[in-house]
Amino acid sequence: MIELRQVTKKYGPLEALHEVSFTAPRGQITGLLGVNGAGKTTALNILTGYFPPTAGQVLVDGMDMLTDSARCKRQIGFLPEKPPIYDEMTVREYLTFASRLREVEARSIPAHVREIIGLCGLEEAADRTLGRLSKGYRQRAGFAQALCGAPPVLVLDEPTVGLDPRQVAEIRELMRRLGEKHTIIFSSHLLSEVQQLCSRVVILHHGRVLREANLGDMMEDGGALRLRVSIALGESRLLPALRSLPCVRRVKTLPTQDAAVTEAVLECDAAQDPQTQLFHLLAAMDAPLRLLYPERDSLEDVFLRATEEG
């Protein structure tokens, strides 16, 4: 649906993005993760046509943003980090203006605006001026603006930043609902938010893409499987045996109060069926297995590892 191809952006001598390529597939929520200054906002501004890249291409449904700008922009609704709102307008006037900008047919604008107001929970504030609204309502109005013209793609730059927990939950719920019909790309540095909402994740760091994968694949990165075990046998006998298993890459012991019990995390090669190898070893050693479960990486682990390596 949306693709960045080898996009580079330079601000004078500073290179904000370096040959960034990623794809946001149709009908999925893609999260753009990165620390502050990673290049997320620059990437989203280029993706929406706010400014062009120094080099590279942005493709929207196969159309080039540079050569077919108006058609590409019709496909995209954009909520920048600071909602682009006019303080002197009421919410209804603002959404009417945004609908006109997005070439909604004049006759259907009132109904279109009513629908968006309902969808974003703005009924109470519909006829109040934007300058007098709370931050949460202003953010929602900005969100509503992105929906005008019913674009199939929504690009949201840190949509929950600065909101209180209840407002955050409301915006996330709205994104989840919209994600059923729209392709959504949003940036965030909140890992939990990305983990909750996204099916696909792109990690940006210092203007480069470090990882791009479906969320599930990213968590099981590198074919590694981590097994959390508790075995009723002392470490001195057990650890050399565990390390001798072909599937085990690394053993990390955990503190225990009973010297006759070993608590550990085994980092194994998932392709070598580590559970079976472990079963045979423990059976041969007559060591009772008290606990065994696979431990998954959190997105935080993946992100920290990726940015440290990057």
């Binding site: 501004n45 929406t48 046509g49 706010y50 400014f51 700008s69 108006a70 058609r71 922009k73 019709r74 995209i76 954009f78 920048p80 600071k82 682009p84 709102i85 006019y86 303080d87 945004a98 900008l101 997005r102 070439e103 603006q145």
Partner: peptide, 11 residues
């Protein structure tokens, strides 16, 4: 006020 983002990302 950065409202130019609304105008310049519209068709």
């Amino acid at each position: 006020t950065r409202t130019d983002q609304l105008l310049l990302t519209s068709p």
